[in-house]
């Protein structure tokens, strides 16, 4: 297992692209993190399409904290999406990349048009580099139609005088929650 080394590299590289990394034990802790963050940033909603059976747990926490919980038809909510929450399929340490199967339109909208993107990543899904995922990614691409995203940091530009500026079109913050436990 090269985990520890990959984990160290992942954290180090993530920092370089302003991704906020935290470690959590399980989905429950990830949800709590997500909700606390939304409250801290003064956001009104959490969009989390594609959570399956975990959705109701997050929904309950949102309700308790007075946050709107969105899971589908996100086009109708554009402009009102605070945090987009997703679970990443893979993590690539070398480039601090989250690999996210984004076939669902709602998932794409949640991860692009929210102010903040929070992604949970099971620790066991971290690989050293993209080459290690070559077969897996090819398989995913061949399961068509397919929309596969590599996300490494928050949306950025340097188009005005080469000054690095975060948050052009996409989220202004990216949070990576490295999760000890596998998904249930």
């Amino acid at each position: 297992m090269e985990q520890p080394q990959s984990l160290v590299l992942m954290k180090q590289r993530a920092e370089a692209v302003q991704t906020v990394v935290s470690e959590v034990r399980n989905m429950r802790e990830a949800f709590d993190y997500c909700v606390e963050l939304a409250k801290k940033e003064g956001l009104q909603s959490i969009a989390a399409p594609g959570l399956g059976k975990n959705a109701s747990a997050l929904g309950t926490i949102c309700k308790k904290n007075g946050l709107n919980f969105l899971t589908k038809n996100l086009r109708e909510h554009i402009g009102r999406i605070g945090t987009g929450f997703t679970v990443a399929n893979w993590g690539i340490a070398e480039t601090a990349t989250l690999v996210i199967d984004s076939g669902s339109e709602d998932l794409r909208i949640a991860t692009m048009l929210g102010e903040i993107h929070v992604a949970a990543l099971p620790r066991s899904r971290i690989v050293a580099d993209a080459a290690a995922l070559e077969e897996e990614l090819t398989r995913m691409m061949k399961t068509t139609p397919s929309y596969l995203s590599f996300i490494s940091g928050a949306s950025r530009t340097a188009d005005i005088e080469r000054v690095l500026t975060i948050g052009v079109h996409g989220p202004q913050q990216l949070h990576m929650l490295i999760m000890e436990e596998e998904l249930l």
């Binding site: 590289r13 370089a16 692209v17 038809n73 086009r75 070398e94 480039t95 990349t97 076939g103 669902s104 339109e105 990614l137 691409m141 061949k142 068509t144 139609p145 397919s146 929309y147 596969l148 995203s149 590599f150 996300i151 490494s152 940091g153 928050a154 949306s155 950025r156 340097a158 996409g170």
Partner: peptide, 21 residues
């Protein structure tokens, strides 16, 4: 190009993906 180890978004699209409109 820019001295980044990777660009923020790398997107791989195969075929006609979901579009609700």
């Amino acid at each position: 190009a820019t001295g980044q180890v990777i660009s923020t978004y790398v997107t791989w699209i195969t075929g006609a993906t979901e579009c609700k409109t």
